[in-house]
């Protein structure tokens, strides 16, 4: 059993528009069977934070291509992407590159 986690989830670059325009979210992820990783964080976000048009944020089990993910200010590609295991007090930033010029 993994203990509950407090993490900061932030949206930018226009991605916040799918979340009622709210950029920063302090969230507590509940206790669950296995460890929390980005894969199940996305499922949780879709269920709990996402307000509209989920396909513009999540496609398949990952984020829509063109949305950058930074974990503690580093590109998630360096950290195992969906498999990254969340730690308490992590900050996860999603930046859309798809809006505006």
């Amino acid at each position: 059993m993994a203990a509950p986690l407090c993490v900061e989830v932030e949206f930018g670059g226009g991605a916040e528009l799918l979340f009622d325009g709210v950029k920063k979210h302090q969230v507590t992820l509940p206790e669950q069977e296995g460890p929390w990783d980005i894969r199940n964080l996305l499922v949780w976000i879709k269920k709990n934070l996402l307000k509209e048009r989920p396909e513009l944020f999540i496609q398949g089990e990952s984020v829509r291509p063109g949305i950058l993910v930074l974990i503690n200010d580093a590109d998630w590609e360096l950290l195992g992407e969906l498999d990254y295991q969340l730690q308490d007090q992590d900050s996860i930033l999603f930046i859309s590159t798809l809006h505006g010029g």
Binding site: G12, G13, G14, L17, L70, L93, I95, S96, H99, G100
Partner: peptide, 11 residues
Amino acid sequence: HFRRLRYFSEE
């Protein structure tokens, strides 16, 4: 992002 530039990102 790294230069902390603020820009307008609405469609």
